[in-house]
Simulated assay, not measured.
Amino acid sequence: MTGSFSTGSNRRHIAILKTISTVGVVFALTACSTSKWDVPLVPADTVVADIERVFVATMRAPTGKDDMRFSGERSERLNFSEIAVSVPKDRKVGKIVGPEEKPDPSKEFAAVQIKSVDDETAFVEAINAEMAGRPQEERVAFVFVHGYNTKFGESVYRHAQLRRDYNVRALPVSYSWPSAGKLEGYLYDRDSVQFARDGLLQTLELLRRSRARKTFVVAHSMGSLLVMETLRQASLSGNQRLLRSVNAVVLAAPDIDEQVFVKQVEMIKPLPRPFVMFVSSKDQALQASRIARRGNPRVGEGKDIATWQSLGITVVDLSGITDGGLMKHGVFASSPSLIRVIQDEGLNFAMLGQKTAAEEVERQPGRRERTRFADNVVHFPTDE
């Protein structure tokens, strides 16, 4: 009868509601704080000790306001800016605190200066000017692509934190795609990933034309899908020069369907090397994503490491890391113990394009080996 449900139908609907509820709770717990992720300027008379310069390319629409420079809305063109980020001197490694309306640089991330860059020509010129003042080995572009539910300010602050905490000897170039920055924006963000592919492709092409000797890309969560789709697009269009200009790729907690990922890898020729993935069986955000997709595993859960090995991908298993947040989705950036191990063992992101992790450890005799390298898999211990 129309408007009625059978017992079986009722059970199915109840199961669906429970799934939606579970996913909603987990995403709520794993989501970044929505308190203040604007980009207010530190007062001009404030003494700021630690500054990170971040170049930004974004497909977000400008707000026209003085605080947050770009919103979660989509732009028809790629926009550019250069932001000098104030990093608190006394803070816990891996932690970022967004600024209040009047930033306190001793406790909060904020901006000291924000410069709009007119167009892609001016962007390349600014990159070249920065590269000219660096030693040859540091003329490297470090591209960071953020994940779901990320506001513009947070994406920039996170990039500055990664460069500082990992001591990456490269120029930060942040690609900020139009995430809604809201819990309920998951599907909007998925569509924005598709929308933002051309912008990331354009950004990588600009870096290829610049004086950067190398480019390596680090992506988190849904941003990993954006990177893979962009590289696949470059391969399908025959843009071999661009693919060869990307010297290393790191995907942290990639929120990508396993079967989709295999197809993406097969289509990307040549695949950037080294290619590294951070995975964790304890990542509750990816577990929720799997539930929402009828149980299809996500790559970042690390359920099929043997397959990734067969594709020549180095897998870093973070399942044994005990700090870095309750939900274990942002461990790559927020775990002090992981950051310390990577620093101690010579696994710095800036070295990825030069030596493998195993080679870096082998060339440091006498140092206690705290990670195990075998068949291009890195296992971090549970007794850290």
Rank of each mutant, 00 (worst) to 15 (best):
S334D: 10
N149Q: 08
G325N: 05
I114R: 01
R298I: 02
P270E: 01
Q202R: 15
M277I: 13
K102E: 08
L201K: 13
R293S: 12
E184S: 14
V378M: 12
P103A: 06
N167C: 14
E345F: 01
R208K: 15
L225Q: 07
N296C: 07
A44Q: 09
G199Q: 07
V23A: 10
P270R: 00
I14Y: 11
L17G: 11
G8R: 14
R77V: 15
E360P: 01
L78W: 06
P62G: 08
T22N: 15
R164Q: 13
S81M: 14
W37F: 11
D165F: 04
F373R: 11
G295D: 06
Y186T: 05
F142T: 09
L231D: 04
P274V: 05
V140C: 13
R213T: 08
L311Q: 13
D104E: 10
V168L: 10
T371Y: 09
L225R: 11
D283N: 09
E52V: 15
T7F: 08
A84Q: 06
E359P: 08
E120Q: 12
A170T: 06
G3W: 04
S235K: 03
R77S: 14
G366M: 12
A122M: 02
K18H: 09
H13F: 09
R232L: 01
V56S: 01
V48F: 03
V316R: 09
T322G: 06
Q354K: 13
V124C: 03
A15H: 13
E229K: 15
S335D: 10
V227P: 04
V249R: 05
E100S: 14
P274D: 03
T30Q: 02
L29Y: 00
T371C: 12
V48N: 07
M222E: 02
G223T: 05
I291C: 01
S319Y: 05
R11F: 08
A234V: 04
F261G: 11
L318D: 02
H379D: 13
